[in-house]
Measured scan of single mutants.
Amino acid sequence: MQIFVKGLTGKTTTLEVEPSDTIENVKAKIQDKTGLPPDQQRLIFAGKQLEDGRTLSDYNIQKESTLHIVWR
């Protein structure tokens, strides 16, 4: 499925993911596209910070959802 990651600059990155992907895995995909290391990424969805060990489905993140990224 496709999801979007929007940064503070307003730039949006598209990712191809599975609902079973962990947040850690998603951060690795973001690094592949942007070069930003996972330890500098904070992902937010529906006002919650996403924890590395959880999956996208744990947070009810579905296709075409938009996550927000904040740099540490």
Rank of each mutant, 00 (worst) to 15 (best):
M1T: 03
M1L: 06
M1G: 02
Q2N: 10
Q2W: 09
Q2K: 13
Q2F: 12
Q2R: 14
Q2L: 15
I3N: 01
I3S: 01
F4Y: 13
F4K: 07
F4R: 06
F4M: 06
F4W: 07
V5Y: 03
V5F: 05
K6T: 13
K6G: 04
K6E: 08
K6Y: 06
K6P: 02
G7W: 15
G7K: 04
G7L: 14
G7H: 12
L8M: 12
L8A: 10
L8P: 14
L8W: 13
T9K: 12
T9N: 15
T9W: 15
G10C: 08
G10R: 07
K11P: 10
K11I: 13
K11L: 13
K11D: 11
T12G: 06
T12R: 11
T13L: 15
T13M: 15
T13I: 15
T13P: 03
T14Q: 09
T14F: 06
T14M: 12
L15R: 00
L15Y: 08
L15P: 00
E16I: 11
E16P: 03
E16M: 12
E16H: 10
E16V: 13
E16N: 13
V17R: 00
V17M: 03
V17L: 05
V17K: 00
V17H: 01
E18S: 14
E18W: 13
E18C: 09
E18G: 07
E18N: 13
E18H: 14
E18R: 14
P19W: 06
P19S: 09
P19C: 05
P19F: 07
S20H: 12
D21A: 06
D21E: 09
D21G: 02
D21V: 04
D21S: 08
D21H: 05
D21P: 00
T22L: 11
T22M: 07
I23N: 01
I23T: 04
I23E: 00
E24L: 14
E24A: 14
E24P: 03
E24K: 11
N25D: 09
N25M: 15
N25P: 00
N25C: 09
N25R: 15
V26F: 02
V26I: 10
V26D: 00
V26S: 00
V26G: 00
V26M: 03
V26R: 00
K27R: 05
K27H: 02
K27Y: 03
K27S: 02
K27T: 02
K27W: 05
K27M: 05
K27P: 00
A28Q: 14
A28Y: 12
A28C: 07
A28E: 09
A28T: 09
A28M: 14
K29M: 13
K29F: 05
K29H: 04
K29P: 00
K29G: 02
K29N: 03
K29L: 09
K29V: 04
K29Y: 06
I30A: 02
I30M: 08
Q31F: 15
Q31I: 03
Q31E: 08
Q31W: 15
Q31L: 08
Q31V: 04
Q31K: 11
Q31T: 10
Q31H: 15
D32P: 03
D32L: 13
D32Q: 14
K33F: 11
K33P: 03
K33Q: 10
K33T: 07
K33L: 14
K33S: 10
K33G: 04
K33A: 13
K33D: 05
K33V: 11
T34Q: 04
T34N: 04
T34E: 05
T34M: 13
T34D: 03
T34R: 04
T34V: 08
G35N: 05
G35Q: 05
L36E: 04
L36P: 03
L36M: 12
P37W: 10
P37G: 05
P37E: 07
P37K: 11
P37F: 07
P37V: 07
P38L: 11
P38Y: 10
P38A: 15
P38H: 10
D39F: 10
D39A: 12
D39E: 14
D39R: 12
D39H: 13
D39P: 07
Q40G: 09
Q40E: 09
Q40P: 02
Q40I: 09
Q41P: 03
Q41F: 15
Q41R: 03
Q41A: 09
Q41L: 15
Q41V: 15
R42Y: 13
R42H: 13
R42V: 15
R42D: 10
R42K: 13
L43P: 01
L43I: 07
L43G: 00
L43H: 01
L43W: 03
L43V: 05
I44W: 14
I44G: 03
I44Q: 06
I44N: 05
I44P: 00
F45H: 07
F45V: 03
F45N: 02
F45A: 03
F45G: 02
F45I: 03
A46H: 14
A46Y: 08
A46L: 12
A46S: 08
A46N: 15
A46W: 07
A46T: 05
G47Q: 04
G47C: 06
G47N: 06
G47L: 03
G47P: 01
G47S: 05
G47R: 04
K48Q: 14
K48V: 15
K48H: 12
K48C: 07
Q49W: 14
Q49N: 10
L50E: 00
L50D: 00
L50N: 00
L50I: 04
L50Y: 01
L50V: 04
E51I: 08
E51D: 09
E51T: 05
E51F: 07
E51C: 07
E51S: 07
E51V: 09
E51R: 07
D52F: 04
D52W: 03
D52G: 07
D52K: 05
D52Q: 05
D52T: 06
D52L: 05
G53K: 10
G53E: 11
G53A: 10
R54L: 10
R54Q: 08
R54F: 13
R54Y: 13
R54C: 08
R54M: 12
R54E: 04
R54P: 04
R54W: 11
T55M: 09
L56M: 05
L56T: 02
L56K: 00
L56Q: 00
L56H: 00
L56C: 03
L56V: 08
L56A: 02
S57H: 08
S57I: 08
S57Y: 08
D58W: 09
D58V: 03
D58A: 05
D58T: 04
Y59P: 00
Y59M: 03
Y59I: 02
Y59K: 00
Y59A: 02
Y59Q: 03
Y59V: 02
Y59R: 00
N60D: 08
N60W: 04
I61H: 00
I61T: 01
I61P: 01
I61E: 01
I61R: 00
I61D: 00
K63F: 08
K63E: 12
K63V: 07
K63N: 15
K63M: 11
K63H: 15
E64D: 14
E64N: 14
E64I: 03
E64P: 03
E64T: 05
E64K: 08
S65C: 05
S65E: 05
T66F: 07
T66C: 05
L67N: 00
L67W: 01
L67M: 04
L67Q: 00
L67G: 01
L67V: 11
L67Y: 01
L67K: 00
H68I: 14
H68T: 12
H68D: 10
H68R: 08
H68N: 09
I69P: 01
I69A: 04
I69R: 02
I69V: 12
I69D: 04
V70Y: 13
V70P: 02
V70R: 08
W71D: 10
W71F: 12
W71P: 13
W71M: 14
W71K: 10
R72H: 14
R72Y: 14
R72V: 15
R72W: 13
